[in-house]
Amino acid sequence: MKDLLVQAITSMQEEEAVALAAHMLGAGAQAQTILEACREAMCIVGDRYERREYFLPELVVSGEALKRVAALIRPEARQAATGEPLARIVIGTVAGDIHDIGKEIVAFMLTANEFEVRDLGVDVSAGRFVHEVGEARPDILALSGFLTLAYDSMKQTVAALGAAGLRDRVKVMIGGAPMDDGVRDYVGADAYGPDAMAAVRIARRWSEGG
């Protein structure tokens, strides 16, 4: 049954996946089993996206199927079933920029690869990032931007982390269409990734102490 659920999600059989998960829960399956299936399905989809077999349509449909299946499980059961993540990551699109599609793909891929991701949304001020880093103590801060004005917002965010004495506590990665290593230097980040797979590779390297 669990394999069927994985199969339904990864082959874009959205309605079947939700019906199957509901049936399994009704028949006494553990929340843990359903969540494991979700995790497995997410890995497969992420892997196929990485190998350029899947694209945005598949990410959108499987992402929504996963959300609907997970929603069938009570929040406290969901909480209890979550394992220890590789690292904790705070992600957001920087001040003045409201683009979110790229950031969501990155968040999806990081989650699929066993990182815990807290998404602050778009147009996030330097102050809010600093506050989150201070409170949530993530290992990694991922800054997204689609416009050239994001360069300066990123630079200000990194500077604000420094001013708050938090710069050494967190690794900073940047991404988004107009970014590259020149921009990384300019804003003072630790790494730049051209796509979601690069974000995963960088986060893995960092979580392994590299």
Partner: peptide, 8 residues
């Protein structure tokens, strides 16, 4: 590269 006009 557009960023070069700002950062280069």
């Amino acid at each position: 590269p557009s960023h070069l006009l700002l950062t280069g």
